[in-house]
Design a protein around this nucleic acid. Structure first.
Length: 684
RNA sequence: CGCGAGGUAGAGCAGUGGUAGCUCGUCGGGCUCAUAACCCGAAGGUCGCAGGUUCGAGUCCUGCCCUCGCUACCA
């Protein structure tokens, strides 16, 4: 049994508000876990904070004409408020821009530096002279050296799928200023992950094969098996924590080096406020450290951060890293940039005081084992059929009957019948069952076990029929209602980790505040709510959600998707002037697609047969993500016929179909008269 | 291409060698205390496909197909 728990939730990055995906993947499960343990009387530090460094924030500030400080202040405030309103009850929520964090991160860097852990390397990197900064690979575009696609990124060409290095691109261009980057030398410090393979193997691959989630374990194993590379932990940037070494002017700690240290500095800040010692929470072997994260963070929390902690010597390692998969929204990936999301602050405007509904839906449909989909239809169904119909209705029945028969006073029971004992026994099994599911990080299951208690209650009332018995055997009804009230009280206690706002309302409704009921009282106490105890008048815990409300939400999503499409586009820079001769050298002809088939084992490639006069040609085109084979057949397209043939995936492609590519990277055929094609759309 | 996860009733999920299960939805019935809520019953599955191991396979092995993700700055 651990003496204490340090629970961390991924630090939200302050370049935008948070949405339901963040909540479902990280914060709701972490909060349930922390609340459950606190309810058990455990010593818990539930730690989080805003992650406020890194190149994305610096860029966003430049783009919006603000200072980075203004950007992070704005979002830190918004995120902080959202968490508070949703009842995500951190023991401490700090910020990585605070002095305590800067100091802590620098201390850890210096410590590792002095121990000689880092490797120093000088490399050549692309530098944007106009923006006066080095460029991360994804901030460089240019022509792909392999397939000639004009908009390949510095790390990968989306067209042909090849992995690239930014220095290979033809005509590289900075996406920040548009200027041509130049090569410059720069020195950085590297964490030699490759030297820690043996440590990671024995710690994770041997030590956690059975208790870590398959997705986490598999991912880590894949990285280790492929061989780890030294990783730079510093960057050339003007926004971040200065590297505390004398020859490191203008260099800051890599955001992923400093962010997880934020857990430690946030713990320090909390301990100082509470007059506690922070060190046992990070250094005592009897502390259980758990990181709640999304799957994209696995490498940092299972490899990089543990190596940092291990190398420094005296820190403990995480006991588990229960990473969740992703949540989609109405069938599509949640995307901040495309505004395809349900933002927490906007949810609250539409559904005031209904935080628990979202908490419940996101728990019941959490992406624990695979990506899941959030739909408004399911949201409505879960609310109306489960929270309202089963949970809320049970409570309402009990409270209404208690007032009708006994003026709201808990009646004194006669001796229990077998059926009364059976439901009470069934309830007594639940605290351990639910607790076990929670400590195994199976929150979906835990939430369904909770709902089972309300089902037990409804069934009990239906079987015992107090409304009939009252006419023939009123004495029997005292026992029935007493028993039903015990279940209602049990629900109030066991709901707390999942539905904190509801638990509070229910506690008030049943006037349980003074009784101070604990989790284990549910299976240990004979009576949760005593005879002669007076309860409040009935009040609804959940409201039905109507179809109109769902239509509004769906309309909102649809309009943001549309708005996003019609957003004024920045027209791609014009290419150098060409000549009429060059143009006439191109042979453009109209052709009709007569056959279309997706190329096996590719995401994008489509093999097309096109009719061109009396000739049929085979063309391979990267459009499979935007079109189905069926809808392509019969389409008339413009074909560049005299392009040199090229073999893709073993199929010779003779020609190229002219396509427009919009901002989202989706292709449209070239029919400029079509309304949906915007001015400035690039054709290639 | 490589690697990881997933593919079980209309939907969402559980089930790691022994008669296929849960929740929602659908259909039928019951009840009327309750937010037209609750309770009971039924229909609905060749467990992605094809082979193999085994007395026996959703479960183990092999191959393939599909979805999502990762490949180092999207929770």
């Amino acid at each position: 049994m651990p003496k204490r728990y340090t629970i961390t939730a991924a630090l939200p990055y302050t370049n935008g508000p948070i949405h339901i995906g963040h909540l479902a993947g990280v914060y709701v499960p972490a909060d349930i876990y922390a609340r459950y343990l606190r309810g058990q009387g455990k010593d818990v530090a539930f730690i989080c904070g805003s992650d406020e460094h890194g190149v994305a924030i610096s860029l966003k500030a430049k783009k919006e004409g603000k200072t980075p400080q203004e950007v992070i202040d704005q979002y830190d405030q918004l995120i902080r408020t959202s968490f508070k309103k949703f009842g995500i009850e951190f023991d401490n929520y700090s910020r990585t821009s605070r002095a305590i964090h800067h100091n802590t991160a620098q201390e850890i860097f210096s410590d590792l530096y002095q121990k000689g852990i880092f490797e120093e390397k000088e490399t050549e990197q692309l530098f944007d002279p106009e923006a006066n900064q080095f460029l991360a690979d994804r901030y460089v575009t240019g022509t792909c050296p392999i397939c000639q696609h004009p908009e390949a990124y510095g790390d990968q060409c989306e067209n042909c799928g090849s992995s690239l290095s930014a220095t290979e691109l033809i005509n590289p261009q900075s996406t920040i200023s548009g200027s041509q980057p130049e090569m410059r030398k720069t020195k950085h410090w590297y964490l030699p992950l490759n030297q820690y393979e043996a440590f990671l193997k024995s710690w994770i691959l041997e030590g956690h094969q059975s208790d870590w989630k398959p997705n986490v374990y598999g991912q880590v194993k894949s990285w280790i098996d492929n061989g780890l590379q030294p990783r730079a932990v510093t960057r050339d940037l003007d926004w971040g924590i200065p590297v505390p070494v004398s020859d490191a002017n203008g260099k800051v700690l890599y955001v992923w080096f400093d962010a997880p240290i934020g857990y430690i500095s946030s713990t320090k800040e909390w301990a100082a406020e509470k007059g506690k010692d922070w060190e046992p929470y990070w250094k005592d072997k009897d502390t259980q450290l758990v990181h709640f994260i999304g799957k994209d963070n696995i490498v940092f929390h299972c490899i990089i951060f543990p190596v940092m902690l291990h190398a420094s010597g005296d820190y403990i390692l995480p006991e588990n890293v229960p990473a969740n998969e992703f949540l989609n929204l109405e069938g599509q990936k949640i995307s901040t940039s495309k505004n395809w999301a349900v933002w927490l602050h906007e949810y609250l405007e539409a559904f005031p005081d209904q935080q628990d509904v979202l908490r419940y839906v996101l728990t019941a449909n959490a992406p624990e084992t695979k990506d899941n989909d959030f739909t408004w239809e399911e949201f409505q169904a879960r609310n109306n059929n489960e929270l309202v119909a089963i949970y809320g209705n049970f409570i309402n029945r009990v409270v209404v009957l208690t007032h009708k028969y006994y003026d709201g006073v808990v009646p004194s029971p006669e001796s229990l019948f077998k059926e009364d004992q059976l439901v009470l026994d069934a309830m007594k099994l639940l605290p351990n069952k639910i607790g076990h599911a929670i400590t195994q990080y199976r929150f979906r299951e835990a939430s369904q076990l909770l709902m089972q208690l309300a089902r037990i209650g409804n069934k009990y009332l239906a079987d015992a029929e107090p409304w009939k018995q009252i006419k023939t055997d009123p004495v029997r009804v005292t026992t029935i209602m007493h028993t039903a009230l015990q279940i209602a009280a049990g629900l109030a206690v066991l709901s707390e980790p999942f539905l904190p706002h509801t638990a509070k309302k229910l506690t008030a409704l049943l006037q349980l505040e003074k009784l101070q009921l604990k989790w284990d009282d549910v299976n240990q106490k004979e009576e949760l709510i005593p005879t002669d105890h007076k309860i409040e008048k009935a009040q609804l815990l959940f409201q039905k959600i109507e179809d109109v409300q769902m239509d509004e939400q769906r309309a909102k999503l649809a309009s943001s998707a549309k708005q996003n499409q019609s957003e004024t586009q920045i027209i791609a820079p014009l290419k150098p002037q060409t000549t009429f001769e060059n143009f006439t050298a191109l042979d453009l002809k109209v052709a009709q697609i007569i056959e279309a088939k997706k190329v096996d084992k590719t995401k994008k490639l489509m093999e097309l047969k096109v009719q061109l006069g009396n000739e049929i040609r085979t063309v391979v085109s990267g459009i499979a993500q935007d079109f189905d084979a069926a809808e392509l057949i019969g389409k008339k397209v413009t074909l560049l016929t005299n392009l040199a043939p090229r073999t893709l995936k073993g199929i010779e492609s003779n020609g190229m179909i002219l396509l427009g590519e919009n901002k989202q990277g989706h292709f449209v055929f070239v029919h400029p008269e079509d309304e949906s094609v915007q001015n400035g759309t690039e054709i290639h």
